[in-house]
Design a protein around this nucleic acid. Sequence first.
DNA 1: CGTACCATTGACGACGGTCAAAAAACGTGG
DNA 2: CCACGTTTTTTGACCGTCGTCAATGGTACG
Lengths: 227, 227
Amino acid sequence: MCLGNSNSRDRELVVSDGDGWISTPSIDHDPLESIGTVVSLTRNRELYAHGDPAAHLYKMISGAVRTCKYFSDGRRQIGAFYLAGDVFGLQMDIAHTLSAEAINSSRVLVIPRPALMALAERDNDVALRLWSLTTRELRRTHDHVLLLMKTAPERVASFLLAIAERVGTSSSVDLPMPRRDIADYLGLTMETVSRTLSDLQAAGTIKLPRSQRIVFSNRTALERLKS
Amino acid sequence: MCLGNSNSRDRELVVSDGDGWISTPSIDHDPLESIGTVVSLTRNRELYAHGDPAAHLYKMISGAVRTCKYFSDGRRQIGAFYLAGDVFGLQMDIAHTLSAEAINSSRVLVIPRPALMALAERDNDVALRLWSLTTRELRRTHDHVLLLMKTAPERVASFLLAIAERVGTSSSVDLPMPRRDIADYLGLTMETVSRTLSDLQAAGTIKLPRSQRIVFSNRTALERLKS
DNA sequence: CGTACCATTGACGACGGTCAAAAAACGTGG
DNA sequence: CCACGTTTTTTGACCGTCGTCAATGGTACG
Protein backbone atom coordinates (compact mmCIF):
# COMPACT_ATOMS: atom_id res chain seq x y z
CA MET A 1 0.00 0.00 0.00
CA CYS A 2 1.03 3.56 -0.32
CA LEU A 3 0.53 6.29 2.25
CA GLY A 4 -2.64 4.57 3.32
CA ASN A 5 -3.10 5.60 6.92
CA SER A 6 -1.56 9.01 6.70
CA ASN A 7 -4.28 11.28 7.98
CA SER A 8 -5.27 14.63 6.59
CA ARG A 9 -3.01 16.44 9.02
CA ASP A 10 -0.10 14.76 7.24
CA ARG A 11 -1.10 16.11 3.87
CA GLU A 12 -1.18 19.70 2.74
CA LEU A 13 -0.90 21.45 -0.55
CA VAL A 14 2.65 22.29 -1.42
CA VAL A 15 1.72 25.91 -2.03
CA SER A 16 0.63 26.20 1.58
CA ASP A 17 3.93 24.93 2.87
CA GLY A 18 5.84 27.86 4.20
CA ASP A 19 9.19 26.71 5.54
CA GLY A 20 11.21 27.65 2.51
CA TRP A 21 12.03 24.33 0.92
CA ILE A 22 10.98 25.47 -2.55
CA SER A 23 14.32 25.67 -4.32
CA THR A 24 14.01 28.69 -6.59
CA PRO A 25 10.53 30.18 -6.78
CA SER A 26 11.80 32.75 -9.24
CA ILE A 27 12.67 32.40 -12.91
CA ASP A 28 13.22 28.65 -13.27
CA HIS A 29 10.71 27.54 -10.63
CA ASP A 30 10.67 23.75 -10.62
CA PRO A 31 7.43 22.66 -12.31
CA LEU A 32 7.62 19.36 -10.41
CA GLU A 33 6.77 21.24 -7.26
CA SER A 34 3.54 22.69 -8.54
CA ILE A 35 1.67 19.39 -8.72
CA GLY A 36 2.69 17.67 -5.48
CA THR A 37 1.44 17.06 -1.95
CA VAL A 38 3.56 17.14 1.19
CA VAL A 39 3.47 14.07 3.43
CA SER A 40 5.00 13.61 6.87
CA LEU A 41 6.51 10.25 7.78
CA THR A 42 7.48 8.87 11.16
CA ARG A 43 10.55 6.71 11.78
CA ASN A 44 10.41 3.36 9.94
CA ARG A 45 7.17 4.34 8.21
CA GLU A 46 6.89 2.60 4.84
CA LEU A 47 6.33 4.96 1.92
CA TYR A 48 5.79 2.16 -0.57
CA ALA A 49 6.50 -1.56 -0.63
CA HIS A 50 8.25 -3.84 -3.08
CA GLY A 51 5.66 -4.70 -5.72
CA ASP A 52 3.45 -1.65 -5.19
CA PRO A 53 2.34 0.13 -8.35
CA ALA A 54 4.76 2.98 -9.04
CA ALA A 55 2.13 5.70 -8.89
CA HIS A 56 4.21 8.60 -7.59
CA LEU A 57 7.47 10.44 -7.81
CA TYR A 58 8.98 11.72 -4.56
CA LYS A 59 11.08 14.67 -3.56
CA MET A 60 12.67 14.79 -0.12
CA ILE A 61 11.96 17.95 1.85
CA SER A 62 13.59 16.96 5.13
CA GLY A 63 14.73 13.81 6.91
CA ALA A 64 16.03 10.65 5.28
CA VAL A 65 14.54 7.73 3.36
CA ARG A 66 16.08 4.37 2.42
CA THR A 67 15.03 2.11 -0.43
CA CYS A 68 15.59 -1.57 0.22
CA LYS A 69 14.88 -5.13 -0.70
CA TYR A 70 14.29 -7.95 1.78
CA PHE A 71 15.40 -11.47 0.87
CA SER A 72 13.65 -14.62 1.96
CA ASP A 73 16.46 -15.49 4.39
CA GLY A 74 16.17 -12.17 6.19
CA ARG A 75 19.07 -10.44 4.47
CA ARG A 76 18.34 -6.89 3.38
CA GLN A 77 20.00 -4.77 0.72
CA ILE A 78 19.67 -1.00 0.81
CA GLY A 79 19.59 0.49 -2.67
CA ALA A 80 20.02 4.14 -1.78
CA PHE A 81 19.63 6.84 0.82
CA TYR A 82 17.63 9.94 -0.06
CA LEU A 83 18.18 13.22 1.76
CA ALA A 84 16.74 16.72 1.52
CA GLY A 85 16.43 17.79 -2.11
CA ASP A 86 16.79 14.31 -3.60
CA VAL A 87 14.19 13.03 -6.05
CA PHE A 88 13.38 9.31 -6.17
CA GLY A 89 10.89 6.81 -7.56
CA LEU A 90 12.12 7.56 -11.07
CA GLN A 91 12.00 4.01 -12.40
CA MET A 92 9.27 3.90 -15.02
CA ASP A 93 8.41 0.32 -14.10
CA ILE A 94 4.85 -0.74 -13.54
CA ALA A 95 5.77 -1.72 -9.98
CA HIS A 96 8.47 -0.68 -7.54
CA THR A 97 11.40 -3.09 -7.34
CA LEU A 98 12.42 -1.88 -3.89
CA SER A 99 10.47 -0.62 -0.91
CA ALA A 100 11.00 2.82 0.61
CA GLU A 101 11.03 3.57 4.33
CA ALA A 102 11.65 6.67 6.39
CA ILE A 103 14.83 6.38 8.45
CA ASN A 104 13.66 9.11 10.79
CA SER A 105 10.90 11.72 10.82
CA SER A 106 10.76 13.03 7.30
CA ARG A 107 8.72 15.22 4.99
CA VAL A 108 8.31 14.18 1.39
CA LEU A 109 6.74 15.87 -1.61
CA VAL A 110 4.56 13.28 -3.38
CA ILE A 111 3.95 13.87 -7.09
CA PRO A 112 1.28 11.77 -8.84
CA ARG A 113 2.76 10.04 -11.86
CA PRO A 114 -0.17 10.65 -14.27
CA ALA A 115 -0.04 14.41 -13.69
CA LEU A 116 3.72 14.29 -14.10
CA MET A 117 3.55 12.34 -17.34
CA ALA A 118 0.92 14.68 -18.71
CA LEU A 119 3.20 17.58 -17.88
CA ALA A 120 6.18 15.80 -19.48
CA GLU A 121 4.24 15.25 -22.66
CA ARG A 122 3.27 18.90 -22.86
CA ASP A 123 6.46 20.45 -21.62
CA ASN A 124 9.65 19.22 -23.25
CA ASP A 125 11.79 20.82 -20.55
CA VAL A 126 10.09 18.62 -17.97
CA ALA A 127 10.76 15.49 -20.02
CA LEU A 128 14.42 16.42 -20.34
CA ARG A 129 14.62 17.24 -16.66
CA LEU A 130 13.19 13.86 -15.74
CA TRP A 131 15.84 12.32 -17.94
CA SER A 132 18.50 14.37 -16.21
CA LEU A 133 17.29 13.31 -12.77
CA THR A 134 17.32 9.70 -13.88
CA THR A 135 20.88 9.91 -15.18
CA ARG A 136 21.95 11.34 -11.83
CA GLU A 137 20.30 8.38 -10.13
CA LEU A 138 22.05 6.08 -12.59
CA ARG A 139 25.41 7.65 -11.81
CA ARG A 140 24.88 7.16 -8.08
CA THR A 141 23.87 3.55 -8.60
CA HIS A 142 26.99 3.02 -10.73
CA ASP A 143 29.08 4.42 -7.89
CA HIS A 144 27.28 2.04 -5.56
CA VAL A 145 28.32 -0.89 -7.77
CA LEU A 146 31.94 0.28 -7.72
CA LEU A 147 31.73 0.59 -3.93
CA LEU A 148 30.58 -3.00 -3.54
CA MET A 149 33.70 -4.50 -5.06
CA LYS A 150 36.05 -2.82 -2.62
CA THR A 151 37.35 -4.09 0.72
CA ALA A 152 35.52 -3.29 3.96
CA PRO A 153 37.76 -0.36 5.02
CA GLU A 154 37.55 1.08 1.50
CA ARG A 155 33.77 0.84 1.50
CA VAL A 156 33.43 2.51 4.87
CA ALA A 157 35.87 5.30 3.99
CA SER A 158 34.14 5.94 0.65
CA PHE A 159 30.77 5.98 2.36
CA LEU A 160 31.79 8.46 5.04
CA LEU A 161 33.25 10.85 2.47
CA ALA A 162 30.27 10.50 0.14
CA ILE A 163 27.74 11.16 2.90
CA ALA A 164 29.79 14.07 4.22
CA GLU A 165 29.66 15.59 0.76
CA ARG A 166 25.88 15.50 0.90
CA VAL A 167 25.01 16.45 4.48
CA GLY A 168 28.25 17.16 6.30
CA THR A 169 31.18 19.53 6.16
CA SER A 170 34.75 18.87 5.12
CA SER A 171 35.65 18.12 8.73
CA SER A 172 32.66 16.20 10.11
CA VAL A 173 29.33 14.57 9.40
CA ASP A 174 26.29 13.49 11.39
CA LEU A 175 25.17 10.19 9.94
CA PRO A 176 21.41 10.24 9.43
CA MET A 177 21.17 6.42 9.59
CA PRO A 178 22.06 3.67 12.08
CA ARG A 179 24.92 1.17 11.65
CA ARG A 180 22.61 -1.54 10.42
CA ASP A 181 21.50 0.61 7.47
CA ILE A 182 25.09 1.49 6.60
CA ALA A 183 26.00 -2.20 6.70
CA ASP A 184 23.13 -3.22 4.44
CA TYR A 185 24.05 -0.44 2.02
CA LEU A 186 27.71 -1.44 1.94
CA GLY A 187 27.03 -5.17 1.71
CA LEU A 188 28.74 -5.77 5.07
CA THR A 189 27.54 -6.74 8.54
CA MET A 190 26.86 -4.25 11.30
CA GLU A 191 29.77 -5.75 13.22
CA THR A 192 32.24 -5.21 10.40
CA VAL A 193 31.13 -1.59 9.97
CA SER A 194 31.46 -1.01 13.71
CA ARG A 195 34.87 -2.69 13.86
CA THR A 196 36.12 -0.73 10.86
CA LEU A 197 35.01 2.56 12.41
CA SER A 198 36.75 1.59 15.67
CA ASP A 199 39.91 0.75 13.71
CA LEU A 200 39.77 4.11 11.94
CA GLN A 201 39.43 5.81 15.32
CA ALA A 202 42.32 3.82 16.76
CA ALA A 203 44.44 4.85 13.75
CA GLY A 204 43.57 8.50 14.43
CA THR A 205 41.77 8.88 11.10
CA ILE A 206 38.39 9.73 12.61
CA LYS A 207 36.85 10.52 15.99
CA LEU A 208 33.49 9.19 17.20
CA PRO A 209 32.18 11.54 19.91
CA ARG A 210 28.75 9.92 19.50
CA SER A 211 27.94 6.89 17.39
CA GLN A 212 26.15 8.98 14.76
CA ARG A 213 28.78 11.72 14.68
CA ILE A 214 32.00 11.33 12.70
CA VAL A 215 34.82 13.85 12.92
CA PHE A 216 37.50 13.63 10.24
CA SER A 217 40.75 14.10 12.13
CA ASN A 218 42.85 12.92 9.18
CA ARG A 219 40.93 13.45 6.00
CA THR A 220 43.92 12.66 3.77
CA ALA A 221 44.18 9.18 5.24
CA LEU A 222 40.48 8.64 4.56
CA GLU A 223 40.80 9.80 0.96
CA ARG A 224 43.73 7.46 0.48
CA LEU A 225 41.73 4.56 1.92
CA LYS A 226 39.00 5.17 -0.65
CA SER A 227 41.49 3.47 -3.02
CA MET B 1 40.18 9.49 -27.57
CA CYS B 2 37.22 8.12 -29.32
CA LEU B 3 37.30 5.87 -32.34
CA GLY B 4 40.52 7.62 -33.27
CA ASN B 5 42.27 5.19 -35.54
CA SER B 6 39.23 3.61 -37.06
CA ASN B 7 39.74 4.06 -40.78
CA SER B 8 37.11 5.06 -43.28
CA ARG B 9 36.44 1.44 -44.17
CA ASP B 10 35.14 1.01 -40.62
CA ARG B 11 32.58 3.75 -41.00
CA GLU B 12 29.58 3.80 -43.25
CA LEU B 13 26.30 5.59 -43.29
CA VAL B 14 23.64 3.63 -41.52
CA VAL B 15 21.33 3.92 -44.52
CA SER B 16 23.89 2.06 -46.62
CA ASP B 17 24.04 -0.85 -44.23
CA GLY B 18 22.21 -3.73 -45.76
CA ASP B 19 22.30 -6.68 -43.43
CA GLY B 20 18.94 -6.17 -41.83
CA TRP B 21 19.78 -4.94 -38.37
CA ILE B 22 17.31 -2.05 -38.52
CA SER B 23 14.69 -3.15 -36.06
CA THR B 24 11.40 -2.03 -37.58
CA PRO B 25 11.77 0.18 -40.63
CA SER B 26 7.99 0.45 -40.83
CA ILE B 27 5.52 2.43 -38.72
CA ASP B 28 7.47 3.12 -35.54
CA HIS B 29 10.90 3.31 -37.13
CA ASP B 30 13.38 4.25 -34.41
CA PRO B 31 14.41 7.86 -34.96
CA LEU B 32 17.68 7.16 -33.16
CA GLU B 33 18.77 5.08 -36.10
CA SER B 34 18.38 7.83 -38.65
CA ILE B 35 21.23 9.96 -37.34
CA GLY B 36 23.92 7.36 -36.61
CA THR B 37 27.03 5.85 -38.17
CA VAL B 38 28.00 2.19 -38.07
CA VAL B 39 31.44 1.37 -36.69
CA SER B 40 33.20 -2.01 -36.63
CA LEU B 41 35.32 -2.91 -33.63
CA THR B 42 37.91 -5.66 -33.23
CA ARG B 43 38.40 -7.66 -30.03
CA ASN B 44 39.53 -5.51 -27.08
CA ARG B 45 39.21 -2.34 -29.14
CA GLU B 46 38.42 0.63 -26.91
CA LEU B 47 35.30 2.54 -27.89
CA TYR B 48 35.86 5.28 -25.35
CA ALA B 49 38.00 5.67 -22.26
CA HIS B 50 37.25 6.76 -18.71
CA GLY B 51 37.29 10.55 -18.74
CA ASP B 52 36.59 10.98 -22.45
CA PRO B 53 33.92 13.56 -23.27
CA ALA B 54 30.59 11.78 -23.62
CA ALA B 55 29.99 12.83 -27.21
CA HIS B 56 27.97 9.89 -28.47
CA LEU B 57 25.21 7.46 -27.74
CA TYR B 58 25.72 3.85 -28.86
CA LYS B 59 23.46 1.08 -30.04
CA MET B 60 24.82 -2.45 -30.38
CA ILE B 61 24.24 -4.07 -33.75
CA SER B 62 26.22 -7.27 -33.20
CA GLY B 63 28.90 -8.59 -30.89
CA ALA B 64 29.43 -7.60 -27.26
CA VAL B 65 30.82 -4.59 -25.40
CA ARG B 66 31.80 -4.22 -21.74
CA THR B 67 32.01 -0.99 -19.75
CA CYS B 68 34.61 -1.01 -17.03
CA LYS B 69 36.72 0.92 -14.59
CA TYR B 70 40.37 0.18 -13.81
CA PHE B 71 41.68 0.86 -10.33
CA SER B 72 45.19 1.96 -9.53
CA ASP B 73 46.06 -1.45 -8.06
CA GLY B 74 45.07 -3.28 -11.24
CA ARG B 75 41.63 -4.38 -10.11
CA ARG B 76 38.92 -3.91 -12.67
CA GLN B 77 35.16 -3.60 -12.24
CA ILE B 78 32.84 -4.27 -15.16
CA GLY B 79 29.75 -2.09 -15.06
CA ALA B 80 27.69 -3.81 -17.72
CA PHE B 81 27.66 -6.01 -20.79
CA TYR B 82 25.93 -4.73 -23.91
CA LEU B 83 24.65 -7.12 -26.56
CA ALA B 84 22.81 -6.76 -29.87
CA GLY B 85 20.00 -4.23 -29.54
CA ASP B 86 21.23 -2.63 -26.31
CA VAL B 87 21.69 1.14 -26.11
CA PHE B 88 24.43 2.59 -23.90
CA GLY B 89 26.32 5.80 -23.15
CA LEU B 90 23.13 7.29 -21.70
CA GLN B 91 24.71 9.12 -18.78
CA MET B 92 24.37 12.81 -19.47
CA ASP B 93 27.67 13.55 -17.78
CA ILE B 94 30.24 15.76 -19.35
CA ALA B 95 32.69 12.85 -19.32
CA HIS B 96 32.33 9.07 -19.27
CA THR B 97 32.78 7.51 -15.85
CA LEU B 98 33.65 4.12 -17.30
CA SER B 99 35.49 3.01 -20.41
CA ALA B 100 33.90 0.82 -23.08
CA GLU B 101 35.69 -1.99 -24.89
CA ALA B 102 34.64 -4.57 -27.46
CA ILE B 103 34.72 -8.09 -26.03
CA ASN B 104 34.86 -9.57 -29.51
CA SER B 105 34.34 -8.34 -33.07
CA SER B 106 31.36 -6.02 -32.87
CA ARG B 107 29.38 -3.53 -34.86
CA VAL B 108 28.02 -0.47 -33.12
CA LEU B 109 25.74 2.33 -34.23
CA VAL B 110 27.30 5.61 -33.09
CA ILE B 111 24.90 8.51 -32.58
CA PRO B 112 26.37 12.02 -32.08
CA ARG B 113 25.02 13.56 -28.91
CA PRO B 114 24.41 17.08 -30.28
CA ALA B 115 22.23 15.74 -33.08
CA LEU B 116 20.43 13.53 -30.58
CA MET B 117 19.82 16.38 -28.17
CA ALA B 118 18.53 18.58 -30.96
CA LEU B 119 16.16 15.82 -31.93
CA ALA B 120 15.08 15.35 -28.30
CA GLU B 121 14.31 19.04 -27.99
CA ARG B 122 12.18 19.03 -31.11
CA ASP B 123 10.56 15.65 -30.71
CA ASN B 124 9.01 14.97 -27.33
CA ASP B 125 8.68 11.26 -28.10
CA VAL B 126 12.44 11.05 -28.47
CA ALA B 127 13.00 12.76 -25.11
CA LEU B 128 10.59 10.35 -23.41
CA ARG B 129 12.22 7.40 -25.16
CA LEU B 130 15.65 8.46 -23.94
CA TRP B 131 14.20 8.60 -20.46
CA SER B 132 12.74 5.14 -20.90
CA LEU B 133 16.07 3.74 -22.06
CA THR B 134 17.78 5.33 -19.09
CA THR B 135 15.31 3.83 -16.62
CA ARG B 136 15.94 0.41 -18.14
CA GLU B 137 19.66 0.96 -17.61
CA LEU B 138 18.93 2.07 -14.07
CA ARG B 139 16.92 -1.08 -13.42
CA ARG B 140 19.76 -3.28 -14.69
CA THR B 141 22.28 -1.43 -12.54
CA HIS B 142 19.99 -1.88 -9.52
CA ASP B 143 19.88 -5.60 -10.24
CA HIS B 144 23.67 -5.53 -10.44
CA VAL B 145 23.83 -4.02 -6.95
CA LEU B 146 21.53 -6.73 -5.61
CA LEU B 147 23.73 -9.34 -7.29
CA LEU B 148 26.85 -8.06 -5.56
CA MET B 149 25.57 -8.74 -2.08
CA LYS B 150 24.95 -12.43 -2.71
CA THR B 151 27.29 -15.39 -2.19
CA ALA B 152 29.53 -16.63 -5.01
CA PRO B 153 27.27 -19.53 -6.11
CA GLU B 154 24.24 -17.23 -6.04
CA ARG B 155 26.02 -14.64 -8.17
CA VAL B 156 27.13 -17.16 -10.74
CA ALA B 157 23.70 -18.79 -10.94
CA SER B 158 21.97 -15.41 -11.28
CA PHE B 159 24.42 -14.38 -13.95
CA LEU B 160 23.97 -17.50 -16.04
CA LEU B 161 20.18 -17.19 -15.97
CA ALA B 162 20.25 -13.46 -16.72
CA ILE B 163 22.59 -13.87 -19.69
CA ALA B 164 20.60 -16.84 -20.98
CA GLU B 165 17.52 -14.63 -20.94
CA ARG B 166 19.28 -12.17 -23.24
CA VAL B 167 21.23 -14.34 -25.67
CA GLY B 168 20.48 -17.98 -24.88
CA THR B 169 17.56 -20.35 -24.74
CA SER B 170 15.82 -21.86 -21.73
CA SER B 171 18.16 -24.86 -21.91
CA SER B 172 21.56 -23.40 -22.82
CA VAL B 173 23.63 -20.30 -23.45
CA ASP B 174 26.88 -19.42 -25.24
CA LEU B 175 28.66 -16.91 -23.04
CA PRO B 176 29.91 -14.02 -25.15
CA MET B 177 32.64 -13.13 -22.62
CA PRO B 178 35.62 -14.88 -21.01
CA ARG B 179 35.79 -15.93 -17.34
CA ARG B 180 37.84 -12.92 -16.37
CA ASP B 181 35.08 -10.58 -17.54
CA ILE B 182 32.42 -12.56 -15.69
CA ALA B 183 34.55 -12.43 -12.54
CA ASP B 184 35.06 -8.67 -12.76
CA TYR B 185 31.33 -8.19 -13.32
CA LEU B 186 30.39 -10.37 -10.35
CA GLY B 187 33.03 -8.93 -8.03
CA LEU B 188 34.75 -12.32 -7.75
CA THR B 189 38.04 -13.75 -9.01
CA MET B 190 38.38 -15.80 -12.18
CA GLU B 191 39.31 -18.78 -10.01
CA THR B 192 36.17 -18.56 -7.91
CA VAL B 193 33.97 -18.32 -11.00
CA SER B 194 35.72 -21.30 -12.54
CA ARG B 195 35.49 -23.33 -9.35
CA THR B 196 31.81 -22.49 -8.92
CA LEU B 197 31.04 -23.58 -12.47
CA SER B 198 32.95 -26.82 -11.86
CA ASP B 199 30.97 -27.37 -8.65
CA LEU B 200 27.70 -26.77 -10.52
CA GLN B 201 28.78 -29.30 -13.13
CA ALA B 202 29.77 -31.83 -10.44
CA ALA B 203 26.34 -31.35 -8.85
CA GLY B 204 24.68 -32.07 -12.21
CA THR B 205 23.15 -28.59 -12.41
CA ILE B 206 24.95 -27.58 -15.60
CA LYS B 207 27.16 -29.11 -18.30
CA LEU B 208 30.24 -27.42 -19.81
CA PRO B 209 30.89 -28.98 -23.24
CA ARG B 210 33.19 -26.04 -24.01
CA SER B 211 34.22 -23.32 -21.60
CA GLN B 212 31.99 -20.72 -23.25
CA ARG B 213 28.99 -23.03 -23.58
CA ILE B 214 26.68 -23.71 -20.66
CA VAL B 215 23.92 -26.33 -20.83
CA PHE B 216 21.29 -26.16 -18.10
CA SER B 217 20.76 -29.78 -17.11
CA ASN B 218 18.82 -28.84 -13.97
CA ARG B 219 17.34 -25.42 -14.40
CA THR B 220 15.22 -25.68 -11.26
CA ALA B 221 18.32 -26.13 -9.12
CA LEU B 222 19.85 -23.03 -10.74
CA GLU B 223 16.73 -20.95 -10.11
CA ARG B 224 16.74 -22.08 -6.50
CA LEU B 225 20.41 -21.09 -6.14
CA LYS B 226 19.60 -17.58 -7.32
CA SER B 227 18.18 -17.19 -3.78
C1' DC C 1 15.18 4.58 37.03
C1' DG C 2 14.31 0.81 34.23
C1' DT C 3 13.81 -1.05 29.70
C1' DA C 4 14.47 -1.47 25.03
C1' DC C 5 17.35 -0.74 21.26
C1' DC C 6 21.66 0.08 19.25
C1' DA C 7 26.63 -0.22 19.11
C1' DT C 8 30.91 -2.35 20.40
C1' DT C 9 34.05 -6.05 21.28
C1' DG C 10 35.64 -10.91 21.35
C1' DA C 11 36.37 -15.71 19.69
C1' DC C 12 36.05 -18.61 16.02
C1' DG C 13 35.11 -20.46 11.45
C1' DA C 14 33.98 -20.34 6.50
C1' DC C 15 34.05 -18.35 2.19
C1' DG C 16 36.52 -16.59 -1.19
C1' DG C 17 41.29 -14.53 -2.47
C1' DT C 18 46.18 -15.39 -3.58
C1' DC C 19 49.88 -17.78 -5.53
C1' DA C 20 51.32 -21.49 -8.35
C1' DA C 21 51.06 -25.16 -11.59
C1' DA C 22 48.77 -28.12 -14.88
C1' DA C 23 45.51 -28.68 -18.54
C1' DA C 24 42.66 -27.08 -22.33
C1' DA C 25 41.58 -24.16 -25.98
C1' DC C 26 42.98 -21.20 -29.55
C1' DG C 27 45.61 -19.30 -33.31
C1' DT C 28 49.47 -19.38 -36.50
C1' DG C 29 52.58 -20.96 -39.65
C1' DG C 30 54.94 -24.83 -41.60
C1' DC D 1 46.47 -31.20 -41.16
C1' DC D 2 49.64 -31.13 -37.64
C1' DA D 3 53.18 -28.87 -34.55
C1' DC D 4 54.06 -25.19 -31.79
C1' DG D 5 53.46 -21.23 -28.80
C1' DT D 6 50.22 -18.35 -26.51
C1' DT D 7 46.27 -17.49 -23.94
C1' DT D 8 42.52 -19.04 -21.22
C1' DT D 9 40.70 -22.14 -17.95
C1' DT D 10 40.95 -25.40 -14.40
C1' DT D 11 42.66 -27.32 -10.19
C1' DG D 12 45.34 -27.39 -5.84
C1' DA D 13 47.16 -25.67 -1.36
C1' DC D 14 47.14 -22.14 1.81
C1' DC D 15 45.82 -17.87 4.04
C1' DG D 16 43.22 -13.55 5.21
C1' DT D 17 39.11 -11.04 5.49
C1' DC D 18 34.84 -10.81 6.87
C1' DG D 19 30.59 -13.28 8.73
C1' DT D 20 28.53 -15.68 12.71
C1' DC D 21 27.40 -16.19 17.34
C1' DA D 22 27.55 -14.36 21.82
C1' DA D 23 28.31 -11.19 25.50
C1' DT D 24 29.00 -6.57 27.13
C1' DG D 25 28.47 -1.64 27.13
C1' DG D 26 26.08 2.66 25.85
C1' DT D 27 22.20 5.68 24.83
C1' DA D 28 17.49 7.24 24.37
C1' DC D 29 13.03 7.32 25.97
C1' DG D 30 9.15 6.29 28.65
